[in-house]
Design a protein around this nucleic acid. Structure first.
Lengths: 229, 229
DNA sequence: CCCCTCCTGACAGTTTCCGGCAGTTGAATG
DNA sequence: CATTCAACTGCCGGAAACTGTCAGGAGGGG
């Protein structure tokens, strides 16, 4: 049972150990499988996130190990994690809060002592004042925009309550002044702007993509912000 | 493809996140699989080295999972980490902020793309309003008290500004209502109390140890807090 | 042109997986 | 003592996934 999964791990291990360019034939022999299946296995690993470079007439090379070294954190770092994640659990939208809980659980699993584990987990549950996140809004629209580098159109109420309709290129979602805000390029004003998530009345995904400009746009915005301060 | 393996990981994660005794039915629903299959999956995990305690008429409990391959963070989880840690960098005392930065660097190192790494790191630097942490106070005294389970004596100003001198048994440092507070047993009042760090005028380490009562004390305090809400 | 090697598609045989059902067991509860 | 709960087990048949074999492509080096 689980023969296949086990074999994939062995394959990965073989690629780590064997000297750099390894032929598929060699790996097939190593894992005891036909050539055809080996190609399928390589596919599976790539699909699972491993970066495997394959060149014709040359062989395979493992560029990047996604099974990273077991993350170990010292006590102070654990403390920082617990605090930060507890905060996100309260503040964030449901999806974000769940992710924070999930990280917490993963990190707790690496803790040596069982009682420490439990406390670590417990502390993050202590304080739960009313959720501060703008409940009506579906953050996933914004988050998808950031990740997929697609525009989003908003109905947004500014400080005076004036409502405007605009299209933005969302760059990142961050805390600022204790609130969740979206850093974005505003197509209406043709400038970088921050949008408080609690003032966004509605968000709709648009089809237009701005890939691959997100990284450079965000960089410019950050330098602009830094210059202003 | 690989659906099964993926499901097993999800099952494990579910057991870590959900509160302790979980019924098979619940886990089956969580992983979207029939009850029969769930029992098979539990078997697989046990065979793979996870220690899962199952009691009839009660539920499952995960006692240990060290034998299993290390878990990586997905995109959403990375996002949660970045947000939480950025917050701690601003809020925390220097030692804590440094720890947060250090975790950030460790996690960033595992990110696949170089530009993603850079952005991830950059975002956490964006916003730096004035540090909100009570600058005069040396948090390490309190933190050491928590870790080494030794008493600490405080000069503390309450809500009306009345200053009192008291000895506490510090249990944990957490956020509450957006401020850093110390959860502790107050020897003066003989009760559990929360102390806002920004109202602590002075903290001195005492020699008296309360080891190993910290875990149980904190547990009682937490249940008391939860009962009150 | 030939050889190396990665890579893809199709097909058939085999294996594994999955849900459902029926039933057992241990413990707590009433 | 009966009942409920919920972990477990065995077995079946259909569905799905995996595997090896065969038959090609495709890019680069000699």
């Amino acid at each position: 049972m689980m023969a296949r999964t086990d074999r994939l791990f062995r394959l990965l291990q073989a690629m780590r150990v064997l000297p750099a360019p390894v032929t598929a034939a060699r790996l097939a022999e190593e894992t005891g499988v036909s050539l055809r299946s080996l190609y399928r296995d390589i596919d599976s690993l790539r699909a699972a996130g491993a970066r495997i470079e394959g060149e014709r007439g040359y062989g395979y090379r493992l560029t990047e190990d996604h099974a990273l070294p077991p993350q170990t954190f010292d006590r102070m770092e654990i403390e920082a994690l617990a605090l930060g994640l507890a905060e996100v659990r309260h503040m964030g939208d449901p999806a974000l809060a769940e992710a924070a809980a999930s990280v917490l659980a993963k990190v707790a699993a690496t803790l040596p002592d069982a009682s420490e584990q439990h406390l670590f987990h417990a502390v993050s549950h202590v304080y739960r004042p009313e959720a501060r996140y703008p409940s009506g809004l579906d953050m996933s629209t914004l988050r998808n925009g950031c990740w997929r580098e697609t525009a989003v159109s908003l109905r947004y109420a500014d400080g005076e309550g004036t409502v405007t309709e605009r299209t933005i290129l969302p760059l990142a979602i961050v805390y600022a002044d204790r609130r969740l805000v979206v850093l974005a390029w505003c197509c209406l004003r043709e400038a970088f702007r921050m949008f408080r998530t609690d003032r966004i009345l509605e968000a709709r995904a648009e089809a237009t993509s701005f890939r691959p400009r997100r990284a450079s746009l965000l960089r410019s915005y950050l330098t602009e912000l830094r210059a202003r301060a």
